[in-house]
Amino acid sequence: MRIPNDTCILVADGRKMLFFRNEGDADYLQLELETKRTQDNPPNREHKTDSAGRNFSSAGPRRSKMQETDFHQLEEDRFAAETADLLYKRAHAGEIEKLLIVAPPRTLGELRRHYHREVEERLVGEIDKDLTGHSVADIEKAILNAG
């Protein structure tokens, strides 16, 4: 994938966001970190206090367990929504001309739900990979080998 100079690259998952800018050219990426945000999101067992409730059927003695809320996933989804809002603010302020987003499939889906038109207009591509725990060199290599 060819990424022109000055393209913004968001590498995110549900807990970490890295915002880079390509200071190199389309053939030789040189990603410079502009913003880094992380969210402390403990496992679901630390978010909840009770087990799932029971539901009684209106006909007969049947009882069924209610589905448990995954608070950990809710926090990851909220973080993705906040990240999409940050993208909108930067795009609206003219700080983003071209944008590439790299995120795991679930996070990418949640980001898409919150894209504003101004972000969509600047989007040059999406890569569905989790690269937040990788080095900058590995991120550059994965981007160049994508697509």
Rank of each mutant, 00 (worst) to 15 (best):
I3Q: 04
I3Y: 01
C8S: 15
L10P: 13
V11A: 10
A12V: 15
G14N: 05
L18G: 01
F19M: 08
F19C: 01
F19A: 02
D27A: 07
Y28G: 02
L29Y: 02
Q30E: 15
R37G: 00
N41K: 08
P43E: 12
P43K: 02
R45K: 06
H47F: 10
K48I: 05
D50M: 02
A52T: 08
N55C: 00
S57R: 09
A59I: 09
R63W: 00
S64T: 13
S64F: 11
M66T: 07
T69E: 15
L74C: 00
L74I: 05
D77P: 05
F79S: 11
E82D: 15
T83Q: 09
T83G: 04
A84W: 03
D85L: 07
L87Y: 12
K89T: 14
A91P: 14
G94H: 03
G94F: 04
E95T: 00
K98T: 10
A103E: 13
A103F: 00
R106F: 06
R106D: 13
L108T: 03
H114D: 14
H114W: 07
Y115T: 08
E120K: 05
E120F: 02
E121A: 05
V124S: 08
G125Q: 14
L131V: 06
L131H: 03
S135G: 01
V136N: 07
A137Y: 08
K141R: 15
I143L: 12
N145H: 14
A146L: 09
G147A: 14
